[in-house]
Every structure is written in structure tokens, then in C-alpha cells.
Design a protein around this nucleic acid. Structure first.
Lengths: 154, 154
DNA sequence: TACTGATAGTCAGCATACTGAGCAATATCA
DNA sequence: TGATATTGCTCAGTATGCTGACTATCAGTA
């Protein structure tokens, strides 16, 4: 019988579990209330002003049905705005608000600290190697999830 | 601005996302309907007959409030049984059923295949190294989540 | 034994994630 | 142009995961 520790799927779940807990703890210590998912969405909206929801989902590999709720909460917190697209009446254009920009700026140290903490058991070289291997495995498996990463259409 | 691909937390989320999708697809192809979480719980019940819910949660690092629902579904599918403990009237003893045992046996090839597929971008050596680094990072971060891994009390 | 603190389990509530379905709008092509 | 396919978004339903609160029970101790 294989041990859980020999199952990459189980290890993935555990590492992700710790990563989320560390992120939330650091962000809360900094006085903010933002999830990892909300942070990634907000940062991506800031970097790509006016993008629509499907494009946003593709850039961070979220399912399109998940992104709806995430944006709802960003809007409800006053960090982002959703308005009808002028080019395509089905689509919604997303913009970050000033409040969202301020939050992103202030929260950055906590986010970076979280990334360090979740790797605290590894040396710098090991951390690099872990990220390299994860990127490689993810690239090969990208199309296997319902929400693959998609480059923006420019 | 840091790219998502430099954030271990984001990579963790992506890898976990792919791992779950691959697991579900392989298991469904084999004709079964079992999630990764349910599988791990069932396998652990089989390996530790009569254990209580808190011990089970500790062995697979689930939150105790999560395990309730997972066991509900295993029981509802007829794969496990929950009965009052004779030693502690607060506790429930968990047992796998014959049906559960049969399911576990038949599902094993699909589970193993899933673990291979989610690492298909990596060589054997790289896969080993990825698992080693994940184990190391997880060990160092174990206490940082609400549901740390706990050895069984023997 | 009575009090106190800890423990086992559950529940309500919230936030991801997914499946599958549906609506409105757009794109494509005969 | 008109039929068809596709796309953007939303919703209902289900399954993790978490926080925080609660009940019942147990364990240790004054």
C-alpha cells in the first residue's frame, strides 16, 4: 500500500492548504481581508485594465463560473468595478479602483512575506528548484483542468 | 511586479487544481465516483479500522469540520460505517464496508495512473525531487494550517 | 465529589472550484 | 441574409476547507 507521502496529489493538497493558511494569516496581520484568489484577480486586473472576465480567468487559470463570485466580492469591497463592454454587449470590462490600488500597494509586503514563510523549510536553491518543477509539471498538465492558463489576446 | 509564476502559492494552487482534475477523470473512466479526499479518507479507514474521526482527520490533515461531510458521503455511498465508540461516548468509530473494500481494490489502478499523469511533464528523477521538496516544505509548515498532520495515538 | 478545562463531533456561514444548464449576443458560413 | 455555432456570463447544485460557536462528554484536580 502506497503511503500518502508518495502521492503527489496528496502532497499538492497539503502544500496548497499550508500556502493558503499562511497567506491569510500574513494578510490579516497586515490589517487586510483578502484571499489569495482575490489578490491574484485584483493584481491581474490592475496589470490589464479593461479586460473582460473570460480573459481574466484565463490569465490566472480560474474557472469562469468561479470568477463571477470572486469579482462580486472585489466589487462589494470597493476594490474593483465591473461595467458593460462597449465592444461586446455580452462582456464586462473590469477596472481596479483607487481603493483597490491602495490596498494592493499596502498589502504587497504581507504577500511577499507569505511566499517566504510557506517555503521556510527549503534553502534558496531548493525553493527555486521546487518552483521550477512545479512550473514544468503545470505546463505539461495545463490542458487537463477545466480552467487552463490562457495568454491574453493582444 | 512579481509574476504569478514566481509565487509558490499560485503554483501550489495550479498544481493542486490539475491534480484533482486528473484524479477525477481517471476515476470516472474506471467507472467510479470518488473524490481524492474521499479516497484518502477511505484508504485510511481501511488501514486503521475502528479509528475515530479526529484521528482520521489528523492522519490525512483534514479539518475536523470537513471530515464530517466527507464521512457522511462515504456512509451514504455505503463504503464506510460510523458507529458510537464503546470507550468514549463522544466519539464515533469508523469502519470500511465490504463494498468499500471492493471499491478501493478496483479503483487502485486509476489512482496510480492519475499520480503518473499529473507528473507527466517530469522525468522520474524530477518527480522524486519534486515530492522530496514538497514533503520538506510541508513538514516545515505543518503547524501553520488549522489541520496539521498528526500521528495516530497508539 | 464538584469544578474546570479539554476533547469529539456537529452546525451555520462563507469562499473557492467544479458540472451542467441556460440566456443573450456575436461570429461564421452556406 | 438566415441558420448555426460559438462565446460571455450567470445560476443551481455539489464538494472541499475554513472560522467560530455549541453540545455532550471526559479527564484532572481541589
Amino acid at each position: 500500500m502506497k503511503d500518502n507521502n508518495d502521492m503527489p496529489g496528496h502532497l499538492a493538497r497539503r502544500f496548497q492548504q499550508i500556502a493558503v493558511a499562511v497567506f491569510l494569516a500574513e494578510v490579516e496581520d497586515a490589517g487586510f481581508d483578502l484571499t489569495p484568489v482575490q489578490y491574484a484577480a485584483l493584481a491581474t486586473i490592475k496589470a490589464n485594465p479593461g479586460l473582460d472576465q473570460v480573459t481574466l480567468a484565463g490569465l490566472i487559470a480560474y474557472d469562469r463560473t468561479t470568477i463571477t463570485g470572486v469579482i462580486d466580492r472585489l466589487v462589494q469591497k470597493g476594490l474593483a468595478e465591473r461595467r458593460p463592454s462597449s465592444r461586446d454587449r455580452r462582456a464586462r470590462e473590469l477596472e481596479i479602483t483607487d481603493e483597490g490600488r491602495r490596498t494592493l500597494r499596502k498589502i504587497t509586503p504581507a504577500v511577499e512575506s507569505a511566499q517566504r514563510i510557506m517555503l521556510r523549510g527549503l534553502s534558496a536553491k531548493e525553493s527555486e528548484e521546487l518552483m521550477r518543477l512545479l512550473r514544468k509539471a503545470i505546463a505539461a498538465g495545463n490542458e487537463l483542468s477545466r480552467a487552463p492558463l490562457r495568454a491574453a489576446q493582444v
